[in-house]
């Protein structure tokens, strides 16, 4: 623990950036996988087949899951610790705080990373309990896995997303996720020392858009399932 605290603030930000970018890539893969929800007949066949395909990797799948958990853990712990130090570095607060504008990249999103982060973390725990560790249903059709039944995750999502409260919870969490990614994406490159006049301008200008696209992409699913029910 002492050796972790001793790591310089710059290196801690590098850890946050590397894990952040990796989690960002994971989100893209997760989003692409989710497309299978909309394909196949009967509905959910492709989605269940995709989930079964991932699980069929056995030990490798478990290692990947644990790795992902490790990345999330490292990202969260480093960020929370850094925030604690940042909080201590200004004990007396300003009576008035403002946005300087111009070249500043300070936004509501950039100043609320720890809040959006904590909400997303809570959402993540809920999401994993809801689906990965949720009730186990088996498919009743035989077009996947040579007729052997597989886990019917599609049935679980249709059940979960039939509740307006669940859909509302997802909407709020994903909106905050979009803000988190909006500052996080371009900021990761800057934290890694990757700066170029054009490069930084482009990554900054697409950052919030990417965050919005990813969040909307995820949000389509609960909304779509709620709609067809």
């Amino acid at each position: 623990m002492t050796s972790f605290i001793k790591v310089s603030s710059v290196l801690k930000k590098i850890i946050i950036a590397v894990t952040g970018i990796s989690l960002f890539l994971f989100l893209i893969v997760h989003l692409l996988g989710n497309i299978t929800i909309f394909t196949g007949s009967p509905p959910g066949r492709d989605f269940n087949a995709y989930a079964h395909f991932l699980e069929s990797f056995g030990i490798l799948f478990t290692i990947a899951e644990l790795g992902l958990l490790g990345f999330f853990g490292l990202h969260i712990i480093t960020a929370l610790y850094t925030n604690l130090v940042n909080f201590k570095s200004r004990k007396s607060r300003y009576a008035v705080s403002s946005f300087a504008g111009g070249k500043s990249k300070k936004t509501v999103a950039s100043t609320s990373m720890v809040i959006t982060g904590v909400v997303v973390m809570a959402f993540l725990i809920w999401h994993v309990l809801q689906f990965r560790l949720g009730p186990y249903y088996e498919t009743i059709y035989s077009s996947v896995n040579n007729g052997e039944p597989v886990r019917d995750l599609y049935r679980l999502i249709t059940e979960e997303f039939s509740s307006i409260w669940v859909v509302l919870g997802y909407t709020i969490s994903l909106t905050l996720l979009s803000l988190h990614l909006g500052h996080g994406f371009w900021s990761s490159f800057q934290s890694l020392g990757i700066y170029g006049k054009t490069f930084t301008r482009i990554t900054y200008s697409v950052s919030y858009l990417l965050g919005l696209i990813i969040s909307l992409g995820f949000l389509v699913i609960p909304l779509y399932i709620f709609w067809i029910n």
């Binding site: 310089s8 603030s9 710059v10 801690k12 930000k13 850094t82 130090v85 940042n86 201590k88 570095s89 200004r90 946005f99 300087a100 504008g101 111009g102 070249k103 500043s104 990249k105 300070k106 950039s110 100043t111 990373m113 500052h183 371009w186 900021s187 800057q190 934290s191």
Partner: peptide
Amino acid sequence: KMDEEGFGACSNHGECEAV
């Protein structure tokens, strides 16, 4: 030294450049 003096970590707000 910067850390030891008690300054915070940079979160890329870029407000410094603007002011």
